[in-house]
């Protein structure tokens, strides 16, 4: 199946890229029953292309309003692009069958900027991190508890934190919970949408180094979206600068 797909062949040939974003365009339209569709002047994304290889961190750097978050949503499969293709692991994300998509879901996770709004305030940490596990794996309550405890340790929290509720945690701790949820299913790619922007400098640094460690340990790939040059620098193997919906510049780091 994968071998026959034209998308699995990259320009470099050889190794298949994990994520291929191919000439993606997106314009927000305001359509209404009594009004004709009208295109707004500027496209949120126009002709964006890049690839992410396994184990690589791609940094997307840009000002607010440059279309970074739109790109993140499209890559996550939440927002169909107007044109262009997203291929993840050799499967076209927006043309996949329902079953394929469900399988892809496992390998594609996210960490949002605002750690508080990204968790249901009525759930405990155990329930939050356990949610993806419950959706994809059949674990007994005991097993789930053990897996969650392991994940909490992996992200630098203590096992007892699993009984806490989001209100009882700091932003940095909660962001670690979000990271634990994202890595719970051992995904291939995590979209980091400004993951440290709302935290103070020391916590930022800790979390960035932690993310770097996780990447090396599990061979994760990241799509790191940020407006913070320093943060992008710490983590990324390759950086693209985005402006007004276009990828302007690619920087490769050694």
């Amino acid at each position: 199946m994968v071998a026959n797909s034209p998308l699995s062949r990259t320009k470099d040939g050889g190794v298949m890229s994990l994520l291929i974003v191919d000439h993606v365009t997106k314009t927000y339209t305001s359509s209404h029953w009594f009004r004709a569709k009208r295109k707004e002047e500027e496209a949120a994304l126009s002709g964006v292309s890049f690839v992410v290889e396994p184990g690589m961190c791609m940094g997307i750097l840009g000002e607010s309003g440059a279309g970074k978050s739109t790109l993140g949503r499209i890559v996550l499969g939440l927002l169909p692009p107007d044109s262009g293709r997203i291929s993840f692991n050799g499967v076209d994300l927006y043309r996949a069958t329902r079953r394929e998509r469900k399988r892809l879901r496992r390998d594609l996770q996210v960490v949002f900027q605002d750690s508080y709004s990204a968790v249901n305030p009525r759930m405990s940490v155990l329930q939050i991190i356990g949610e993806p596990l419950r959706n994809f794996e059949r674990l007994s309550a005991q097993e789930e508890r053990r897996v969650v405890a392991g994940l909490l340790e992996t992200v630098g929290l203590v096992t007892d934190d699993m009984h806490k509720h989001p209100q009882q945690m700091s932003g940095g701790q909660l962001q670690r919970v979000n990271i634990a949820r994202a890595i719970a299913l051992k995904p291939k790619l995590i979209v980091l949408d400004e993951p440290v922007s709302s935290l103070d400098m020391i916590v930022q640094k800790q979390i960035l180094y932690h993310l770097k460690e996780l990447k090396e340990k599990y061979g994760l790939s990241y799509l790191f979206i940020s407006h913070d040059l320093l943060a992008v620098n710490v983590l990324s193997d390759r950086v693209a600068i985005m402006d007004k919906g276009k990828l302007e510049l690619m920087l490769k780091e050694s």
Binding site: K102, R105, F112, S117, A118, V119, N120, E131, F136, N178
Partner: peptide, 23 residues
Amino acid sequence: NYVTAARIAGTSPLRMMTRHIIP
């Protein structure tokens, strides 16, 4: 955001309703 996050975590619409929205 937590609804989006749950969707990405693979939560089905029915479960989304009973676990996230209605509570």
